[in-house]
Design a protein around this nucleic acid. Sequence first.
DNA 1: AATCCTAGCGGCACTCCGTGCCACAGGTAA
DNA 2: TTACCTGTGGCACGGAGTGCCGCTAGGATT
Lengths: 243, 243
Amino acid sequence: MTEAAASTPKPRVGRTADGRRKLRSALAVAALDLFAAQGYEATTVEEIVDVVGVGRRTFFRYFPSKEAVVFPDHRERVTEVVELLEAADETEAPLAAVGRTAELVLEMYLAEPEISLKRFELTRQVPSLRDTEIASIDRYQRVFARYLRHRYAGQADGELRAAVAASAVVAAHNHVLREWLRSGGVTDARTELRQALRFVTDTVGTAAGSDSEHVVVSVVRTEASPATVSSRIEGVLRELSDE
Amino acid sequence: MTEAAASTPKPRVGRTADGRRKLRSALAVAALDLFAAQGYEATTVEEIVDVVGVGRRTFFRYFPSKEAVVFPDHRERVTEVVELLEAADETEAPLAAVGRTAELVLEMYLAEPEISLKRFELTRQVPSLRDTEIASIDRYQRVFARYLRHRYAGQADGELRAAVAASAVVAAHNHVLREWLRSGGVTDARTELRQALRFVTDTVGTAAGSDSEHVVVSVVRTEASPATVSSRIEGVLRELSDE
DNA sequence: AATCCTAGCGGCACTCCGTGCCACAGGTAA
DNA sequence: TTACCTGTGGCACGGAGTGCCGCTAGGATT
């Protein structure tokens, strides 16, 4: 019986570099299928490797843990984000750079919709996976905060601003991503993220400190376009700076 | 040897309600001591229960996992936060209610400084504990977001605002808490949290939506007096209204 | 005070995750 | 062909967490 089922006589897929990629992918696919079919906790690593036809030990050579198979290339993505931020133009507004990076993260999800949706379903049902995902999101937030701390260095309350702004960007990203996932991948997440980031920039992006300098917050409702209002106010501010 | 060491002839501490509390506390203390002395992963549950003198099985009757002993009454604290928000006065500003709740959470840490500091040291060194803490913090954030969604219901971008505001409050809280922990419990965390929350309120708290009317928020740092700034801006606004 | 009753404990056995170790196969280079 | 040498399978092990069961201490009942 076992011999008959093992009609594939141990192809040793993982020997070549290409075979390694294939095996890794095969393990991930088998795992997600089993998780979806019978639940995450109810699925053992042994069942996964039996489907693929490799040893249990091999699984842990490709993934550091059973959980990791759900978030396969998280490390690479984080380093990608780090590199993008490190290469950011310093003349660009800090929040703009972080916003672009958040858009990159969103693209990572959008690039593989079915996988993202499967993972979403899993993380919704399995608490431990949800926690792992939250922790992984926090990595992005830390990277954002570090970058913003660097850019806000010297400003009053720079560290606080950096922490708040980073979390706001992540919250906006997550909000848009959640809507997209809940909709089953229908909504135009890119546009919504752009709008959400604009919202964040409009709120936490503008400076607010507390030194001998005063902070003035003016709120006005008007039918004039924001651009008009902004230009007028900027004119006034230039005058003030000259005084 | 074992008999001599077990001079305490099985007191069965956990039988009464008071004994249960004592045993739970004894387990937590023993665990934290061992974690600090020889590391978290290097400490087995068996070692912990050997110190207290109970069976390994009993440990898992008091704590659902080895990690849980580091965050003992997290569930109760979350429910406390939920109750505080549910009892909040609806006339109060939404962010004010959430801010008060964040101050309550901070008080929970300040109430037991040495435990908080020990836990901080652990979570800094052990990745899995750090992840668990991040996940537990996220629970608070979810509660905040749910409350703000309720209060912002009907507003334009209400859900986004709720998500961003909740994460901003949590970020401010965490920032202050981290500073306090890193300082070894020296800084005046209460005052700093109040200032940080004011910062959050000044930024994400002010309205920003998109109806036919526009809401423009301008924040500027200047050495001109607030009165000067206000009069200038009011002048501009009068001009805008006439157009 | 003697007896019942039950909640809580100890301990055993088990599953499963994750890891160190080692023998071995299969591709590669000389 | 022969000598590596990387990746694999299998084994054994430790530790977390769980189900089960017998037992006992403490409280309730009379």
